[in-house]
Simulated scan of single mutants.
Amino acid sequence: MKAEINLITIWTDNVEKMKAFYTEVICFEPINDLGDYVEFQSSGVRFAICNRSVMVGFSEEYLKKSSGQAFELAFPCDTSEDVDITYEKLIKLGATPVHKPQDMPWNQRTALFADPDGNIHELFAEIE
């Protein structure tokens, strides 16, 4: 095994709603849409959403509902101002606001928003 991440998959019970969010709000382009599995164009790490039911035949663990914040996607912005502008744009397009942009002690400006399943994600930029 290589110590590297090749694919991040978000498991969901509502692929259509999540697909709409990640295409219309976040602006990912679908490159492989099989209905219950959608993979998006992403530089670096592959990114997908998949219906939990696809994997139930392999493990009933996929029947369990997730609880709590288990992961975060962090989206880089070019500048601190871009964090503010992007946050407002995402909220207007339907992302759920979690925390408005704020300068953090680790020299980044960050903001938090959630997708339709409640997964919290981050916008960030280095403070110049």
Rank of each mutant, 00 (worst) to 15 (best):
F40D: 00
F124N: 08
K17P: 12
S66Q: 12
T79C: 06
E61I: 13
K65C: 15
K65Y: 12
L123M: 00
Y22C: 09
H99W: 13
E88L: 12
A125T: 03
F40Y: 01
A114T: 01
V45L: 08
L93W: 04
E88W: 12
F40P: 04
Q41E: 15
E16P: 11
P76A: 10
M55P: 11
V98M: 04
N14H: 05
A3G: 11
I5N: 00
A48W: 06
F75H: 08
A48K: 07
L7T: 07
L112D: 11
A74G: 12
V56L: 12
S42W: 11
A74R: 12
E72F: 13
L34W: 15
K64D: 10
Y62K: 03
V98P: 01
T86M: 09
E60L: 08
V25P: 06
F71C: 13
P97S: 05
P105Q: 07
P101Q: 04
D78V: 13
E4N: 15
H99Y: 13
K2M: 15
Y87K: 08
A95Q: 08
T79I: 09
E128D: 14
E61C: 12
V54P: 04
Q69G: 07
E24M: 13
D82P: 01
L112A: 14
D117F: 04
G35I: 01
L7K: 05
I26R: 07
V56E: 11
